[in-house]
Nucleic acid binder design. Structure first.
Lengths: 335, 335
DNA sequence: TCAGTTTTTGGTATCGATACCATTCTTGAT
DNA sequence: ATCAAGAATGGTATCGATACCAAAAACTGA
């Protein structure tokens, strides 16, 4: 313990009395080495506590065995599931994940991408599909798989894995309309950064216009600093109370919907009689809990797994280019 | 765009008509290069779209500018805050974060650590403090800072940043006792994997024994596959109903507490009159929302930032060894 | 037993940057 | 004008692995 330097492959080779390349082969292609030497090398590795140096390996083989991910936030439970699925699938294949979050800032994305490329990853995952021109140029010039996830761009840079946020918004609005709701509001326009949320809102607007209705969006400007549950609470206080014609609210996320639901109950607003509420994200609570929110379940983990597969085998994935994993509208008690 | 290979430092040097080392210096120590050449090099970099290769740099300088993190799960909002603080602070200093999650499995931890060390990180972050002997040996032999976070081990391997889970459990139990509760249950023993939860439970047991009370723990065995909100719901159905002496429940997490709260309301159990409920994690909802859970707020983001600082300047951090960032008991309406 | 294969093994160059040392160029003081 | 001290610059070795090719060993069938 506490040796000054790392044990190198040469040390192992000398100890086992073989050439360095044999040690390399024991690690990468064991069946190409005779059993005697293989065992001797494996013992030497154990004995000396050798840990291979991947930075050196990456340099000579130009394969880093690392994938880079640039996500808008890790602070989201459904996103976290994707990361879980992604990183565990990759690790099983002997790859690691270099993670960066941008907090929805495109300039940070550019910096992050440069930092990532400096590590010569074998592939890149992005949760955003709107990039600065520099980013687009870089991504196009790079000879590695680029996977955009959680949405389906019309013109993917390379490969896309996700589902249609537009369709999700459309379907949910349609569901509310079918339930006989007359004045359906959309809550959560504020998130100018969140392009997935905007797509869902666009779906909502389209569905309404298909039946000749006008959208009601709140907060009406993007100045609002409210988000999550607090935004939901504020909606009841500041919007629903002043505009009692509203009989349904479609929330940008489950968090927001939860805020609306709790505050509605506290204020004696009957759900779903007076106000129908829908969320997004696949809130895990169901009927028995008393919080049975109608929502859209998203295959978060599956996206992660499919992304990992696409990274590991880009050729196959490129045949499809856009991999749509769909979503599920879960009708529960709040609508 | 679409060039076969990466642009190398040599290419930039030739283009700018300088030596490679000058290019290197422009990137790392710009003030040691004359202004004329510096500008020429910077233009060449831009012109050619040069992205430095850090794997090569890491090899020759033995500084990878990458830190590795092994977390039990990313699927936890408070953890996510730590990761956010950690990775953004590190990136500002020009470092990246290599993230691995173990899903609470110590064997995975060992694999993950080996994979991480193969990338020769400049430091390591761990959320667990119970390791296999192989892991402990490896971590001790490594000459880089090792930071254990989210708890305070009595004998840290190197540096620890966090707060006392034991104390948090103790204080919350004490709070319930002070509120006059007679039969306080602890909900969430099942998480054998979650050592932080176990510490809090130990604090609870201690607080009760200090006043001569017996602990009530549910589920009583670890066979339960329930977790999160569902566990909270199950508690009311299966435990509280059968043992009506219980007048308080201290939950291992806010999620669980939320489940208890919702189900209690649905079943007509009065909170806090019939049942006091406490959570853990710093649930962001407060009084106006109707869900005003008494909880313990944890400085998640601060832990991330402090960890980053410790990694970047281990010498200073080692003076303290254990950095206690504390926690805050937030008394709200459920107790 | 031997030529012809196939498998196993090792030597050497190489990946792209930085470290170290040597050299050249400034600059200021005498 | 000359020299010393310091700044700027470049050449070459090096980091630790893998690629590529050549050599040695083992195996095949006649």
């Amino acid at each position: 313990m506490g040796k000054g330097k790392w044990v190198t492959m040469k040390d192992v080779a000398d100890f086992a009395n073989v050439g360095t390349i044999t040690v390399s082969r024991v690690l990468r292609t064991p069946d190409k080495v005779s059993e005697t030497k293989r065992k001797r090398v494996q013992e030497a590795i154990k004995e000396l506590g050798y840990v291979p140096d991947n930075t050196a390996g990456a340099l000579s083989s130009s394969k880093s065995r690392v994938f880079g991910a640039i996500v808008s936030t890790v602070n989201d439970s459904v996103f976290a599931q994707t990361l879980d699925g992604l990183s565990s699938t990759l690790r099983m294949a002997g790859y690691e994940l270099l993670l960066t979050s941008t907090n929805y800032d495109p300039d940070v994305e550019e910096d992050a991408l440069l930092a990532l490329l400096a590590r010569r990853p074998d592939g890149i995952v992005l949760t955003s599909t709107t990039h600065t021109s520099a980013v687009t140029k870089l991504l196009k010039s790079v000879r590695i798989p680029v996977v955009e996830i959680w949405q389906l761009p019309s013109a993917p840079l390379d490969i896309a894995v996700g589902f249609s946020n537009f369709q999700a918004g459309y379907d949910m609005a349609r569901h509310l309309i079918d339930e006989g709701r007359k004045n359906i509001a959309f809550l959560g326009v504020g998130g100018a950064q969140d392009e997935r949320g905007r797509r869902r809102r666009d779906g909502y607007i389209n569905a309404l216009s298909d039946v000749g209705k006008e959208p009601i969006m709140w907060p009406d400007c993007e100045q609002s600093s409210l988000y999550g549950i607090e935004l939901g609470v504020a909606f009841i206080e500041r919007c629903f109370i002043t505009d009692p014609m509203i009989d349904a609210v479609m929330c940008v996320s489950d968090q927001v919907a939860l805020g609306v639901l709790c505050e509605a109950r506290r204020c004696g607003v009957k759900v779903p009689e007076d106000l129908a509420i829908s969320g997004f994200g696949g809130f895990e609570l169901a009927k028995p809990s008393g919080i049975d929110l109608t929502t859209i379940a998203v295959p978060g983990k599956e996206i992660g797994i499919a992304t990992a597969k696409a990274l590991l085998d880009p050729e196959t994935a490129r045949d499809k280019k856009v991999i749509d994993l769909g979503f599920t509208l879960i009708k529960r008690g709040t609508t």
